[in-house]
Amino acid sequence: MQYMVSVIFDGPGLATPEEDAAIDVFNDRLVAEGHWVFAGGLGAPATATVIDNRRGEAMFTDGPFVESKEFLAGFWIIEAADLDVALKLAAEGSKACNRKVEVRPFL
């Protein structure tokens, strides 16, 4: 079962070197214990482009699809047997990156 752990940006600035180091340690652990699927950090919302091609003529719009003080800063996709395992890992991920995170199951 796979879960997406979204990192919610709601505080000041980018990750500090200490946070980066803690994230690396956490990532190594995910790999070592077989939970790692994929992870990544995202550019700021200002770098986003929204595309709407539902009518066959792609429309490009500058900026994120929703303006918000809280936004997705990055994510992990993890493999976990059940939600208890996922929540435990997410709690450690939150500590490592020093941000709130959200856990959602893949369908």
């Binding site: 079962m1 879960y3 047997a81 059940d82 939600l83 208890d84 856990v103 959602r104 199951p105 369908l107």
Partner: peptide, 14 residues
């Protein structure tokens, strides 16, 4: 069901 909350008595430390 969707998030797979386990049907289990939590173990030890939890």
């Amino acid at each position: 069901k969707a998030a797979r909350i386990p049907y289990r008595v939590p173990s030890g430390e939890d």
